[in-house]
Amino acid sequence: MISVERLVKRFGAFKALDDVSLTVPEGKLMALLGPSGSGKTTLLRCLAGLDHADSGDIRLDGVDAAALRAKDRRVGFVFQHYALFRHMTVADNVGFGLKVRKGKDRPPAHEIAERVGRLLELVQLAGLAGRYPSQLSGGQRQRVALARALAVEPRLLLLDEPFGALDAQVRKDLRRWLRRLHDDMGLTSVFVTHDQEEALELADEVVVMNKGRIEQIGSPAEIYDHPASPFVFQFLGNANRLDCLVRQGVGAFGGWSFAARGVPDGPGVAFVRPHDVEVGPADGAAMAATLRHAIVLGPTVRLELSLPDQTPFEAELGREAFSRLDVSPGHAVGLTPRRVAAFPTQG
């Protein structure tokens, strides 16, 4: 088990990590999700021993990591730009971690070769053992980097934006493949991403970070359905933000009122996702709105609306539902949010 306890890391006046604590459960795939500058990569580098925290503890299987240098931590690290050794073949790259072992820890050459062969098969690059990194595609390099990290049988696999430098299709394939690999090999992994879709699709557990702090930890469903803060809600997808008033657990915006459990009395913010709103005829709906534009995006239609107080509002619905609605720009429509999340106004 890997645990992080009250980690703080400053770069000059900038607090990259501000009192971060978490536990990486054995055998799970965990995502560190956040915008750039949120501290997620710094946390990953601290786990690997590539950065040293100013205070706080990291424990690897109960051992204080401060006592272990990066080279002795048995942590696999896949760098964002792979950091493959460009003057070594694919096989030499993968075997490096075994070759640099000393004395009796170092497997004999034939065993290294065997292990490298197996790993290359695992990452489906068996035919490319003699190639140099510059002769590979981005996706292939990524898999070499992964094989290299796995060769040392790490107790923890860390991946820094593992799909960041790949194009969309490759990214999708690799994602599924990585998830399978993780399960087949029984790894414990942490990866960093700024892409909420990637985190939600891939991870068992998502850690949402912002400004060096952890905003929320939970399963993808928990995070998506019960965001703990406005930041998490907005970061996980498009949202309409409405300034509202809360009184005794009930929020009000215009003539529309909704449950706002746990939110103290006073000004608050309510979020409604574009696909969580019903669009229908003007009468009988919770809110009135005027259609400004309708943009067809493949199977769905994005409606740009404006509320009576001129607040812009976005809604999304299927092509068929849109044609049944039969409205054009300038028409009045009615909006009924299916789900809403309310928070107190901060500061």
Binding site: G49, A70, K71, F77, L84, F85, H87, G97, V100, A149
Partner: peptide
Amino acid sequence: RDEEEAAIVLGAGGLRTFWSVTLPN
């Protein structure tokens, strides 16, 4: 420094990293 850091995470020492990663580059 990526390649040096990669070598060190893989367990290489300083001199080893210099000889087999930095110098060839």
